[in-house]
Amino acid sequence: MSRKNHLKLFQGILFFLFCSGLAIGQDFKPVANFNKIQAEINKTSESIKTIKSNFIQEKQLSFLTESIKSEGLFRYKKEDRLRWEYTQPFKYLILFNGNEVVIKDGNNTNVFDAGSNALFKQINNLMLGAVKGDLGKNKDFDFSLNESPKQYQLLLKPVNDNMKKYVAGVEIYFEKGDLAVSSIKIIESTGDFTKITFYDRKFNEPIDEKTFTSN
């Protein structure tokens, strides 16, 4: 596979990663004061300099009796550094550091330029937007905001044809207690979905720069 096509595939994968969450059996209804809550979420996201968290990823395929589970570590440092590391049941590392994206799988390490084309850059922004909770600013989605007693739910529908090929919608959940992202759910056009739940979240603790290198 050529580098160009590899990149196109990777773009899709990245989009998926960064728009991935949590389906919770709660009743959500549209918020009454949209602008006020969005402003509060954005203010919180701006105050977050670092995030340390663990995550559980569950992939639901309609024909399987159980979801496919994996888990790992999540590290984010403002503005654009991210470590997404699977530790169980396999080891797989994705690093974002500025415009550089590194994927490490065993002894194989691939480095990509996130700014090498417009779409890739867009996806990079999208992913960081999801982490920081300011995806509502992204013009590539129609979005709406709902709430339950404990959470806010940001629903995103892609308007961009390229993204529509990969996802039908994204649900991002914010805990009302801290207004930070607690989970993401990515729904595919087939109805299958991936949900990523963050737990043991810690904000604004120091994170060493080495965290964002593959060595």
């Binding site: 998926f16 990663l17 496919i68």
Partner: peptide, 23 residues
Amino acid sequence: IFVFKKLADNKFRAVLMSEVGMT
């Protein structure tokens, strides 16, 4: 990630997905 399902005798479904969950 490779997923295999036996639907019936001699009938199968196979799904290839990325580590991050994308089919």
